[in-house]
Design a protein around this nucleic acid. Structure first.
Length: 109
DNA sequence: GTGTTGACTCTCC
DNA sequence: GGGAGAGCCAACA
C-alpha cells in the first residue's frame, strides 16, 4: 500500500461530524511531517470522481481549522457547505471560513 | 538520479 | 501572541 492509499484509508475512517488536520492524517499514515503530501493526495482525488465520492475529503482542514483548498473543482465554499450538512459550525474569520477545531477534531483510537 | 512542487506545520524572533 | 522562514516528504517531469 502506498502513501496515497494510506491517506485515503485514514480519511475514510473520519466519522461524520468530525474533522482531522492534515498533520493528523499524516501522522496516522506513519509520516507525522508529511502533511503536505496529504494535501497533495487529496488534490489527486480531483482526477478520480469515483474516489471523491467514497472519501470524505471535506473533513480534512489545516491545523488552524481553516479550509485551505485551492482547487477549482472543490472550492472552500463547497467544502464548508458539506461540513455544515454534517453539523459542523463555521464562523467567518476575516474573509475565511473557520471551524471550531477543538470541538470537532477527530481523535482516533 | 535530481530538482521542483505543494489543499502543511513547527520554530524561532 | 503573531508573523516570517525553514523544514518536511512523496510524487512528477
Amino acid at each position: 500500500m502506498n502513501f496515497f492509499e494510506q491517506v485515503y484509508q485514514t480519511v475514510k475512517r473520519i466519522p461524520r461530524g468530525k474533522v482531522a488536520s492534515y498533520g493528523l492524517v499524516a501522522a496516522l499514515c506513519g509520516s507525522p511531517r508529511a502533511a503536505r503530501q496529504v494535501g497533495w493526495a487529496l488534490h489527486q482525488l480531483d482526477q478520480s470522481p469515483q474516489l471523491m465520492k467514497t472519501i470524505p475529503w471535506h473533513r480534512v482542514v489545516n491545523s488552524k481549522g481553516y479550509i485551505s483548498t485551492t482547487c477549482h473543482t472543490h472550492t472552500a465554499d463547497m467544502q464548508k457547505r458539506m461540513l455544515e450538512k454534517e453539523g459542523i459550525d463555521f464562523k467567518k474569520n476575516s474573509e475565511l471560513w473557520q471551524l471550531d477545531l477543538k470541538k470537532c477534531i477527530w481523535k482516533s483510537h
